[in-house]
Design a protein around this nucleic acid. Structure first.
Lengths: 340, 340
DNA sequence: TTATATTGCGCAATCGATTACATTAAGTTA
DNA sequence: TAACTTAATGTAATCGATTGCGCAATATAA
């Protein structure tokens, strides 16, 4: 276990001081080209590796950024992460990923932990439960960039990258209307979360703009689970005047609904259309591929990362950016009544 | 932006030295209970937060562990991560996740980066390409625990947690045989990777143990993609003497095969059985749920984390552990010819 | 009562890199 | 040539926490 070589070792080898070595390694213009080369060569020879911790301690910059999200094992989130990585790793950052499991308390703890670990920034997608903002004001007070993605909260000083959920929902609903559906139901999850509220509004306004009635009993809340989708579809179809289409705010909900509809021999898409939301991979694998709204998770991650980098580059100026990505409707068989 | 409080601030407030404060905070037995209480109270009052970087620099322990894997946006891997987190976060560790995208060069870079960041340990699932071991011996030389999961390499000093791929494949094949299939084909990916080699061996030996012939043309290599599965199935069915079952080393391969089989009106499971590997979520969502071998990713992650903790607890003693988890065959409709 | 533990805490070095502030030598200008 | 730049490097403090060693005060033993 050979001791790691430090700048002092290099200094000793060249009979100069550690300060000079440090400057040479950092390509400081006040160091002569000759010395730089000597230092670089010796560093190489001695197999020198910069001790990130020491540098971090002194400079206050850890080169770590924290990413907080509800779950990692969901395609949407893991793809966002991939986007973040693609931007940040090449810049020398490390990504610390933390899951909240939709638990506000855990979210608050995690923020504290990351702050103690001296992260240079925090990218976060809110837990469902969260309504406290104290932990976020703490982040901002410490002048640590805070960027929300997907699930945001409006806080002065925090940036955000979100999807235009309203537009996505509007487009999906409009598409169903264009397919000839007139009694369109909506499955939502937790209307207290902004994203679901926006999806509902998009759905609602598309109906209104097309002079279709908005039946309250056509909007059902459910957990984002497949069984819940089945159950909700059952209830909808048991109505006196059942719907002829469903726009679901989640893909699993849509899938559950389709399963129930098939089980009661409803023909999709001939007699019933379904559109989901998130464009989860399975939607295209199904025997009956499911139409869905794509959230561009890769782009969202990259964008959030870029916003973070901007904020780092100009720590003095206070930047606050709110970016909204445009969703893409992926039209598949589950809603293709008419061939266009 | 108030300056962070340090142990010196606490010391000054109580008119004692920072050394005492440090010891009190670390619950050192040489500090009196009274002093400890005072320090703790004052720390609370001044909103003191330990600077992890400083502690890390001094102690050489960063409380970060690196997790390296090919992709994060695959259910198997993201669930392994969840398992790792569940064990390590409560112990105060942070998890730095890095993706190799199956690129050996990137893997080597990543290992270097993590080492420079002074991680306390590295948990890794090999990239497909990797055959170099230099970067791993470097890790071990620095006395940093190295634990492989799922995709391993045999290196002195490194531990591993893997699945008994052989057994999983054997059971799957045996199950197909018990369903009455006699001409069982096998879709594999990259036979140079140990996991696929073992799956092949399991398949092969199950056939041999049942005195079934092993036809070379029944084993096909493919990428882990759905189209490849379709294509491979086409080739298999075009054989003079086509198979009556497929055991695929990947779920996407199985799905692609099923899609092709359906398209040529082969009845599953009546006339043809299919079993996949990995138990990806979609396998149970399908209209025809696909049998698959579950890899217990959560358990794998937890186990790998525990092995790491063990190694940390006894840094002096050299522990090398190889753990093999038992797979579970999830029998679903795609291979249920006979009701048991 | 003297010798010896034990308890509680301070002193100061240390981890490795960074950087404001000298300092020295060489080059330039008038 | 004196006065002044400029270039290149050195000095030493600093980031915040940890820890071996030592010392004083109190407790225990002989």
């Amino acid at each position: 276990m050979s001791k790691k070589t430090t700048i002092y070792d290099i200094a000793k080898a060249l009979d100069i001081t550690a300060a000079t070595v440090s400057r040479a390694l950092n390509n400081n213009p006040r160091i002569s080209a000759d010395t730089k080369k000597l230092v670089l060569d010796t560093a190489e020879k001695l197999n020198y590796k910069r001790n990130g911790l020491a540098a971090a301690l002194k400079s206050g910059k850890s080169n770590n950024v924290g990413v907080i999200l509800p779950f990692i094992n969901r395609n949407f989130f893991s793809t966002v992460i991939r986007g973040i990585e693609e931007e940040l790793i090449p810049k020398g950052y490390h990504i610390i990923i933390c899951q909240t499991h939709e638990d506000e308390k855990k979210e608050m703890e995690t923020v504290q932990n990351l702050l103690n670990a001296q992260v240079d920034g925090i990218l976060i997608s809110l837990s469902r439960q969260t309504d406290n903002i104290e932990h976020f004001t703490q982040v901002l007070k410490k002048n640590v960039p805070l960027i929300f993605f997907d699930r945001k909260m409006d806080i002065r000083g925090a940036s955000s990258v979100t999807l235009d959920d309203y537009q996505g929902a509007y487009n999906a609903t409009q598409h169903l209307i264009e397919q000839g559906c007139t009694k369109i139901a909506h499955m939502t999850v937790d209307p207290s979360l902004l994203i679901y509220k926006n999806r509902y509004e998009g759905y609602r306004n598309a109906l209104l703009d097309n002079e279709l009635e908005v039946y309250p009993e056509f909007t059902v809340n459910l957990k984002s689970e497949i069984e819940a989708g089945r159950e909700a579809a059952r209830k909808l179809m048991d109505l006196e005047n059942p719907p002829d289409a469903i726009f679901s705010a989640t893909d699993l909900g849509a899938l559950g609904a389709i399963q129930h509809l098939k089980s009661i021999n409803v023909k999709i898409p001939e007699d019933f259309c379904v559109v989901g939301f998130s464009n989860e991979p399975f939607t295209q694998f199904m025997e009956l591929p499911i139409s869905s709204v794509d959230q561009s998770p890769l782009l969202m991650g990259k964008t959030a990362a870029k916003v973070f980098l901007e904020q780092m580059d100009s720590k003095d100026v206070k930047i606050q950016k709110s970016m909204v990505l445009t969703p893409t409707l992926m039209i598949r068989q589950s809603s293709t009544k008419l061939k266009s």
